[in-house]
Every structure is written in C-alpha cells, then in structure tokens.
Write a protein that binds this DNA or RNA. Structure first.
Lengths: 195, 195
DNA sequence: ATTCTGACTTGACACGATGTCAATATAGAT
DNA sequence: ATCTATATTGACATCGTGTCAAGTCAGAAT
C-alpha cells in the first residue's frame, strides 16, 4: 500500500499539477487527470479516496519538490524586522505562481466540500504563521506601527498576500511578477512599519 | 409578459437575496429559492432563464432597493482628492455587506459558467470606475504618489477593496465593519497619497 | 356561457460530474 | 502454478441544472 506504487502515484500528482497549472485552475475533472496520467478514471480512486484528497496531496507534493522549507529558512535569517518582512513577501509572493493552479481548485471546492475547506484552511494557517513571524520581528525591532495590534497586523498582511489578490493583479490586471512583488513589499511596509 | 407578474418576480428576487444573505453565500439551490418563494422549481425558469440570470437580476434589484446611485453621488461631491478617496472607500465598503451573499454566489459560479463570469465582470467594471474616479481626483490635486501610474493605482485600489478581502477580514478574521472601513481608508491613503 | 390566455403545477427526463461496486485481466514475486 | 497488487471495463447511485409535455385554474374577452 505504501511502497512500490510510487511511479503511478507520482505520475498522478504530476499530471494533476500540470493540468491545473495549464488550465489556470478551473474545470479539471477527475477523468482529465486520469487521462493525463494514462490510467482509468476509476484507478485514481485506488490512490486517492476523493478529489479533495488528491488536491491536497498535490500541494504537499509541490512543497516537497520545491523545498519550500529551505526557502522559508532563508527569509527567517534576515537581520532586521523590515528586511524580514521584505524577504517574507518576496518568498511567499514568488511561491504563489507555483501553487496557484492547485490553490484555485482547492478554493473553489472549499465552498461545497467540507474536507477541501479543512485542507485549504490548513494551508492558510501555515501562511499566516509566516505573516505572524514577520510581524513579531517588526515588533521586536520596535518598528511595528502603533495604529494596530499584532493580530490585526497579521490579518492585514495575510490579506494583502492572499492568492486572490495575486490573481487579480497578476492575471486580471496583467502585472508582471516583479512589479507585483515590488508593490506588495511597498504596501506591506507602508501598512505595518512605523513611519 | 412584463406587466402583472411583478409580485411573483419580486418575491423570487427577495427570497434569493434573503437565502444568500442568510446562508452566507453558498449552497443555495434553485429548489431552495423556489421553496422560499412558494412556487415550484420549474416556475423559476418561467421568470429567469437560468441561475446566473437570476443572480445578476438579484444584484440589480439590490442596487435599486438601496439606491446605490444616490450614495455614490454623495461621495462624488467631496471637496479634495483625499476626501473623495475616503468617501469612496466608505461608501463601497459599507455596501459590500449588502451584496456579499449574491456576490459570493456569482463569484463561485463564474469559475464554471461563462454567463456568470460576464455578469460579475460587469459589476467589477462599475466598481473599478469608482476607483478610477477617486484616483483621478487625487491626481488632479497633485496628491497621487509618484511611485505608480494612474492605472496601477486603480488596480491597487480595486484589489484592496475586493469582496474577497472584505470577507477575509470581516468574516474569517472577525473584524468589525467599522474597523474594516477604518483600516481600508488608512491602507488606501498610505498606498496612493503622496507623503 | 364559452373560450382564450397567462401563470403555475406535476412529473419525467437528459446531462455532467463525483464516487461506488463487481467482475475481470495481467505482471511479478513466491 | 499460484497468489497478490495494480488496473481495467462497465454499470450504477446521487445531486444539481435545465428542458419538455401535459394539465390546472382564475380571470378577461367575446
């Protein structure tokens, strides 16, 4: 059950990712994934109990492949609070494109599917944690604005850095990734750093 | 076709709104609406060709009922650019709760339904227009920041004021409506107004 | 008084997507 | 030669949207 099915399972995850990436998030059916992975639709259910599980497994797969932990470690080593904020915005902001397809599918499912909601919420918590750490670093430097609490600052940062906002600016408004990162760093600093 | 069916049609729109408002946006089926309006599910299709049309008709109905044009006129009469920005953020930000249910349903449909996407896009254009006018007022006052173009400033404002962001802060993070308005005004001013 | 019309009802059905089940095939390990 | 894991095929249940056909029913026109 856990040992030798690696090739097929991997092929499924890879196909899922590629389809979601290409199709920009929507309208990827289980049958599409099966076709791409060159197995029958029913065989998918031998590897993943349902669509929500497949999608969350895909995000974990992406985290592994891109070694997101290592990237986060880098941003944690920033000297000052403001530098740490900048680094965090950059790291997360540059990771969004990779997971966007899966994230969008998961967000869409979340509305109807309990399990998908939980899975996505789990991801959000991880991101929130990154935001919180950045806010705490600012606070420690005495650089956090007086106009809001640490929790509020975290809420705001999390909101600014949402996948939906990335989608709106990058895709709907056609911004470049560089411009997006730049502006988000500006926006975050203006909102959180004491002037 | 257009004269005496007002009561039923109105009852449908009202029921739709109430259900979407109460159910916080999701899982409202045509049959639910029919039941609430006390007609058969099939009779719904005598009044609206499909779900997307019903939802967009509901937004128009809400616009009428709440006389949104009058409220917008007020914010247009602000003296300075910065005041106008403040007024716009307040007006739109305070209108979001009213339309949130319908908006969320429409946004969810948009992913799969071409017509729903067009309808929602139409609404977005109207909001974008409000953002653009505020940016232009700032520009006219010479108060627009140098760090971005008018288009970029509009993009940013539209993004900050998105329904999704409202949802995240108001519902997920449990902010009060007053705090939300306050912080969005701050955020918008910091981002757009020359310091 | 009868007929016509418009709004509505009931009941049946097609479609697309997810998920399940049973029966069968096939390759590799023992 | 057989056992087991992995797949396959095909059928089917469920849910929601949207369509179709046939019939009810009240009120207006003649």
């Amino acid at each position: 059950m856990s040992s030798q099915n690696i090739p097929t399972r991997d092929r499924i995850l890879k196909s899922t990712w590629q389809l979601l990436e290409a199709g920009n998030g929507s309208a990827v059916r289980m049958s599409d994934i099966a076709k791409a992975a060159k197995i029958s639709r029913q065989a998918l259910y031998l590897h993943f109990p349902n669509r929500a599980d497949l999608l969350t497994a895909t995000t974990r797969y992406l985290d592994e492949v891109h070694d997101i932990d290592a990237k986060l470690a880098k941003s944690r080593s920033a000297a000052s609070g403001t530098q740490r904020l900048e680094a965090w915005v950059e790291t997360w902001g540059n990771y969004i494109p990779t997971i966007f397809g899966v994230a969008k599918a998961l967000m869409a499912m979340q509305e109807t599917d309990e399990e998908a909601a939980a899975a996505w919420n789990d991801r959000i918590c991880a991101i929130r944690d990154g935001c919180e750490k950045a806010v705490q670093a600012l606070k420690a430097d005495g650089a956090l604005t007086d106009s809001m609490s640490e929790v509020e600052a975290t809420d705001i940062l999390l909101t600014i850095l949402s996948v939906r906002n990335w989608e709106q600016l990058r895709i709907d408004c056609n911004w470049t990734q560089a411009r997006y990162i730049d502006m988000m760093q500006q926006l975050a600093a203006q909102a959180l750093v004491k002037s």
